[in-house]
Design a protein around this nucleic acid. Sequence first.
DNA 1: GTGCTTAGTTATCAACCGATCACTTAATGG
DNA 2: CCATTAAGTGATCGGTTGATAACTAAGCAC
Lengths: 211, 211
Amino acid sequence: MRAEDRRELVLAEATRIFGSYGYVGATTHQVAEAAGVSQPYIVKMFGTKENLFLEVLGRALDCLMTAFRAEVADETSTQPLGARLGLAYVNLVSQTGMLLSLMHGFVLGADPCIGPVARAGFMTVYRFLREEGGFSPEESHAFLADGMLMNTMIGLRMTDDYGTDASVDELLTTTFPNKLELIRSKADPAPSGGATSPAAGAPADGTPDTA
Amino acid sequence: MRAEDRRELVLAEATRIFGSYGYVGATTHQVAEAAGVSQPYIVKMFGTKENLFLEVLGRALDCLMTAFRAEVADETSTQPLGARLGLAYVNLVSQTGMLLSLMHGFVLGADPCIGPVARAGFMTVYRFLREEGGFSPEESHAFLADGMLMNTMIGLRMTDDYGTDASVDELLTTTFPNKLELIRSKADPAPSGGATSPAAGAPADGTPDTA
DNA sequence: GTGCTTAGTTATCAACCGATCACTTAATGG
DNA sequence: CCATTAAGTGATCGGTTGATAACTAAGCAC
């Protein structure tokens, strides 16, 4: 396979793995297995695990900004931009792991290499909202806060508990007003081995991943 | 030292360490060193690293709920409850690591042991807002979203960049309307070594194979 | 068919991490 | 004085993990 194609495949799988297990928790071996190559080849391609993660973060941010800019450019819609951007954000959940990888980057601010990149990435989004989106500081704040709560719900796998508790349903419904079904169907089907301890893998109740 | 006192000390240090490095990234050795005991003693006290983290999460949630309930019970204030709870939340930053440890728990939803606990903890806060705080679903949503953005700013160590960029200052000012100074003064003074790889410094030249 | 590049592998290492076990030290109580 | 218990350590081990080095196989120009 062409190296460049292989690289894209690896990055896609790495995004999924990092999203599920976090930067520290994910292993280059897991990525290698998912991409169908040997573990040393992953290291050879990216130099270090850290570089791989940074590239995953960069890709995720690029993808996010591309989706946002498409909404700004779209002049056919009558919806307010805020709602359209929110919808675009939620739709990114279908790219499994992307938002979660970003989220994992957001808690690594203390890391001397990842921290600055994560901060810069977040500020890229903020400046986009202010400068290209025409949002006020308060509107930007509210938009980002909403997004962070969505991320938290996804990171918590709160959708796994949907239907088991009225409060959970209420919270999820207000967090994802229109797209709850999408979230539930596209949510990670629970990593096989568990995030840290390789315990049992009972398939839980049947949530067919048919989108 | 009395075992119970030692235990409290260990839990306090563990909260700091887990907040800085995350669940996977933190090591029992780091906690032991910070608490001034040997690493095997940490394991002996809590059985497993996982149990230690779960106890840290439980303590953090207890502390949060105690602070919130104190605000609800306080009838001397004329401020609206939402603002008071928000202020109480920000004040918790002074207990370094507490909010960050919670945040790290919130991205471990996929973990078969930690996930359920983290979800239950989040829902405890939600139910408190709805039932004891008298918040509507929408008010609760907005409050939690605000909190998650604050957590993200803290996790990103965005305050490290305060003063270097007008956008950063604007974002931080709208996120922490009154308490920015507190946040900045109480923020973790940046962990000594690298946050994840103790090999920080010289090597890691990470040149990805100039094939 | 030889030499060169591209795309990969196998084998292995040094370091680390959580956990276990045996041992020790200090106080307490009769 | 001695037994018991509480508090805690040193040594060490098995399993991982990221990274390195050496090797290989396919394609291809000439």
